[in-house]
């Protein structure tokens, strides 16, 4: 049963973070929201992997989560360095359409 609750919590996290990516204007908040959304997806994957019929966890979703974390960390690093360049180039930490 705990697997299902993990998956549900993950789905809620994903939905909240997806809202934040589009509703928040500051880029740092958008980047954090992307990370939260990714964690939501990972929680769903981990939740599915626990509690097979024989009580042992399925290793494949865990391997997927591990790969996903590596990708998410490297994309976040790229986003943050873009953000720094954008902010230090005189611009604000916002996209032009979100100004005001």
């Amino acid at each position: 049963m705990s697997g299902l609750s993990f998956a549900l919590a993950g789905a809620v996290l994903f939905a909240l973070a997806l809202h934040a990516v589009f509703a928040r204007h500051h880029l740092l908040r958008k980047i954090i929201a992307c990370n939260v959304a990714a964690s939501g997806v990972f929680m769903i994957l981990v939740g599915m992997s626990s509690g097979g019929s024989d009580g042992r966890a399925d290793a494949v979703p865990q391997a997927l989560v591990l790969t996903g974390i590596v990708i998410s960390v490297s994309l976040t690093a790229f986003l943050l360095s873009l953000l720094r360049r954008l902010a230090s180039g005189g611009g604000a930490a916002r996209l032009p359409e979100d100004e005001r």
């Binding site: 959304a37 997806v41 994309l75 986003l79 873009l82 180039g89 996209l95």
Partner: peptide, 30 residues
């Protein structure tokens, strides 16, 4: 700066897109 902003927007949307894709994979595997 314009190129950086365009790249930033592209990467954020691509990231949202790939998270949706990953969620789809999770459902299919489950």
């Amino acid at each position: 700066p314009q190129a950086l902003a365009a790249g930033m927007r592209y990467l954020l949307l691509a990231l949202v897109g790939s998270l949706c894709y990953l969620l789809g994979i999770a459902l299919l595997y489950a």
